[in-house]
Simulated assay, not measured.
Amino acid sequence: MTNTEALRLDEVRKVYGDADHTDNTDNRVTALAGISLSLPAGTFTAVMGPSGSGKSTLLQCAAGLDRPTAGRVFVGGHEMTGSETELTRFRREHIGFVFQQFNLLPSLTVLQNVTLPLRLAGKRVEEGRAARILEQVGLGERLSHRPQELSGGQQQRVAIARALVTSPAVVFADEPTGALDTRSARAVLGLLRQAVRVHGRTLVMVTHDPVAASYADSVLFLADGRLVGRMADPTAEAVAERLTRLGDELVQKGA
């Protein structure tokens, strides 16, 4: 683990909707209420919280998929600003994504799906390197297969290889095991942890699953768009207990 900062959020706010001054109605919803955090390179962080806590919004703003209403986001020391075209280019060069739905192109082979981010970024396509990454995720013999010829767990492995091929500053994973059975989920989580431990990648994972969170180095807890806690060296039991407590606190607040 290094001391280099991979991701920083400075007072990031995200507000949806607007106030209508003609009839004094306010339809604004604050999804993020001033989040500040710093994550070192080479770390695995899980983000958790009750439904509506702002987890997905945090990921989207941190990954440049959505613009914050206020505040600043830095990935690999670079602030994410500029036009949509500039943001798209920045994401292609500095950020990797793993989603719950694998988002593989059915007409492309496994190898072609993995090298696609390099082609889109106009970078030199090193098929040998992509093949080595696929070998590392256990798919070295499936390079010419199409996604529909693979199991769900294997498709997610392809998505992980695709996320790693550009050597991104940060990989964002949004419920990466949500569509998988327990055995496949554990295999995928092990691969994500290996990407951090062995290859030095930085991983931020949104999940609702305490078992998935237990694979991370630390867990950030959100509630009402605010960062309300952090847990180092998490266990599934400790995470589940903290989530239950958070839910109870929100119920009491709403009562």
Rank of each mutant, 00 (worst) to 15 (best):
T2G: 15
D10Q: 02
E11I: 09
V12G: 08
Y16M: 13
D18P: 00
D20S: 14
D20Q: 06
V29H: 07
A31T: 15
L37E: 03
L39Q: 10
P40D: 07
G42A: 04
M48Q: 10
Q60S: 08
A70M: 03
G76C: 12
S83C: 03
T88I: 01
R89H: 08
R91N: 10
I95S: 04
N103S: 09
T109Q: 11
V114H: 12
P117E: 04
L118V: 07
A130P: 00
V137D: 04
V137A: 09
V137I: 11
L143T: 12
R146L: 08
Q148C: 00
V158D: 15
A161R: 00
R162K: 05
V171K: 03
D174Q: 10
D174S: 01
E175G: 12
E175A: 02
T177A: 15
A179D: 07
L180R: 09
T182D: 11
R186Y: 11
L189D: 05
L189C: 15
G190Q: 13
V196G: 11
R201L: 02
T202E: 10
L203C: 02
A212K: 07
Y215K: 01
E237N: 04
A240R: 15
R245D: 12
L246E: 14
G247R: 15
L250C: 02
L250F: 08
